[in-house]
Design a protein around this nucleic acid. Structure first.
Length: 561
RNA sequence: UGGCCUAUGGUGUAAUUGGUAACACAGCUGAUUUUGGUUCAGUCGUUCAAGGUUCGAGUCCUUGUAGGCCAACCA
């Protein structure tokens, strides 16, 4: 049996090679390490899918670890949001970990480093330290405090911990090499003094460890075998390894850091700082505004976890610069929504039509298919009557042969109902079309099996009975930025590229079955797109968010003229 | 001026590790269709450059070019 050779990404290749070289498969362990200082976005989703996906593939545990070493920016609110997002994506973590849980261990190790004369307390300000750092091409110079005695260092460090100094008075630095080619190795800071309450440790500490000192050691404590991060940390790897060397004991798993390129999505930005600006400057309503590339925004927009996971898988992972087109994300949304979203009829831009030969006051409840993709077809009832709304753009007084919708003297089918023909256009004095009078073929009812109903008619329109229509507010979203790479132009602020029409609101008329729709429910408004009931929707006001439109080949034909 | 990383269709990734460059999206044709949706069929187009090793190079070597990253008491 020819086994399908599954193509692997470079990270899987690394793991496979480690396994081949004798690494115990049972010792495989991964982690997803967000800093709880903002909301997760689509870029994080890639990382989540990567790490948790590896966990699933290799049956290895994956920890969710909050990298909470900076009490100035981190908050519990973000911890909760992050947990909710990871869960929503459908992943389960083995342990919920916090770097702050390791503060004591980290401190003990730091003391040990001081005793080995591998760390020292520097009492200069940050400007002086930066000054001595040198440049990529010029070696740095030693701090005047570099050769303090072990005793003095121990004493100072303990007093730092005890809160005897103000922020900025001292730092603890690793003693490595001020002339090192890698600037990160030029005596990196391990601890700084911060008199700030931490969201978990409260006021227990007033010294906080830096990222480099914390991250690798946390991986080690958790016995993470493979620690994946983005490319900008590549230079940190040397330091990661150096710190690990200081604490590593033979026989334990030695974590391995490897770097991948972050995923960039076209027509949006995904840096926390920039997303924050969008929120703070009111460009969007909140972090979970459906235009935001945050996971919570995508959720509110109507994306499914499956579609996001599938997107991440399809995009893959590598080490080169990239810009993934949003159209791929949209494809993934449609692909899944097409399978699961019930079809309904809604008219966003109504044009009234009157079926003149349909008896006044009469109504019929017709069968409408819920989803043609389902294995077993189910139906609901939709009301038909003399006066209907159709989409304004579905009628043209004068149209060419390619326009197979409603036009004078030509037949179209009303979805799930009858075949009609336009007879007369009623206009106001300004020439605006007020309504269109039509006649229907009583024998052409859909599903009736009559020869009339089987007639081949080119166009099929969606419609809603005026008398039975529910109204709803519809939010139509477009790309937040009008250019593919808003951050590309270094001279211009990315905010200049904001698409002013990223949100439009409309009042729609819906078939009555939608009255019961609940927040989070997703539908396909036939011929229009996928829509999701917003969380702010209520009994009094139904609110729908447009997730994504259907593929629109008519728009292409139309644009070609 | 230094170091590290990367380079495969328009886009994102693969290529059983040196053996016929493929998959998805996008584009374009056509078929089917009571959604101009879905589905199906077809089509377009790719190894940064120049040398070298080899029977054979996207893969290895050399040089070059282009892009990204590196000097926060951020992560």
């Amino acid at each position: 049996m020819a086994e399908d050779v599954k193509s692997l990404n470079f990270i899987e290749h690394i793991i496979e090679e480690d396994l081949r070289e004798g690494f115990d498969k049972k010792a495989l362990r991964f982690r997803f390490p967000p800093e709880p200082n903002g909301y997760l976005h689509i870029g994080h989703a890639s990382s989540i899918c990567l790490n948790f996906g590896l966990g699933l593939d290799y049956e290895a545990p994956v920890n969710l670890r909050f990298d909470d070493t900076n009490p100035e920016k981190e908050e519990k609110e973000f911890v909760e949001a992050i947990k909710r997002d990871v869960e929503w994506l459908g992943f389960e973590w083995e342990n919920e970990c916090y770097a702050s849980d390791y503060f004591q261990q980290l401190y003990d190790w730091a003391v040990a480093l001081i005793k080995q004369n591998k760390a020292y307390v520097d009492s200069q300000d940050s400007a002086a330290i930066a000054q001595q750092k040198g440049t990529p091409t010029k070696a740095g110079t030693d701090s005047p405090y570099r050769n303090r005695s072990v005793e003095e260092n121990l004493d100072l460090f303990e007093r730092m911990k005890n809160g005897e100094f103000k922020a900025g008075e001292h730092v603890l630095r690793a003693k490595i090499d001020m002339a090192h080619q890698n600037m990160l190795m030029r005596d990196p800071i391990m601890y700084r003094i911060l008199h700030k309450a931490h969201h978990r440790t409260g006021n227990d500490w007033c010294i906080y460890p830096m990222y480099d000192w914390t991250h690798g050691e946390s991986d080690y404590i958790e016995q993470v075998s493979h620690s994946f991060c983005t490319l900008e940390f590549a230079m940190h790897r040397e330091l990661y390894d150096w710190f690990l060397d200081q604490v590593y004991t033979e026989g334990k798993v030695r974590p391995k850091q490897r770097e991948f390129a972050r995923r960039n999505l076209s027509h949006t930005v995904v840096s926390k700082r920039k997303l924050l600006r969008l929120v703070e400057e009111g460009v969007v309503e909140s972090w979970d505004d459906p235009r935001m590339p945050t996971i919570s925004g995508l959720r509110r927009r109507g994306y499914t976890p499956e579609s996001i996971r599938n997107f991440a898988d399809t995009v893959g992972i590598a080490k080169r610069e990239n810009l993934v087109d949003v159209s791929l994300l949209e494809f993934c949304a449609r692909e899944h929504l097409n399978k699961i979203a019930p079809r309904v009829m809604a008219v966003l831009d109504p044009l009234k039509i009157v079926i003149t030969n349909y008896p006044e006051g009469q109504e019929e409840w017709l069968d409408a298919e819920n989803n043609p993709e389902e294995e077993e077809l189910t139906y609901r009832k939709v009301p038909f009557s003399r006066e209907l709304y159709i989409e304004r753009e579905d009628f043209k007084e004068e149209a060419n042969r390619k326009f197979f919708r409603l036009k004078p003297g030509k037949e179209v089918r009303l979805k799930n109902a009858y075949i009609i023909q336009a007879d007369k256009v009623i206009k106001d004095e300004a020439g605006n079309i007020l309504e269109v009078h039509c006649t229907y073929d009583p024998l052409s009812r859909s599903g009736s099996g009559t020869p009339e109903s089987m007639r081949k008619v080119k166009g099929t329109l969606h419609w809603v009975s005026v008398a039975h229509a529910e109204t709803a507010t519809i939010r139509l979203y477009d790309r937040l930025f009008s250019v593919a790479e808003p951050e590309e132009n270094k001279e211009k602020d990315f905010m200049e590229f904001i698409n002013p029409d990223s949100l439009q609101t409309a009042t729609a008329y819906l078939e009555p079955s939608l009255k019961e729709a609940q927040p989070g429910d997703r539908f396909q408004f036939q011929r229009l797109g996928y829509f999701c009931v917003d969380k702010s929707s209520s009994e009094n006001e139904l609110i729908f968010n447009k997730t994504v439109g259907l593929r629109d080949s008519w728009a292409k034909i139309e644009n070609k003229g």
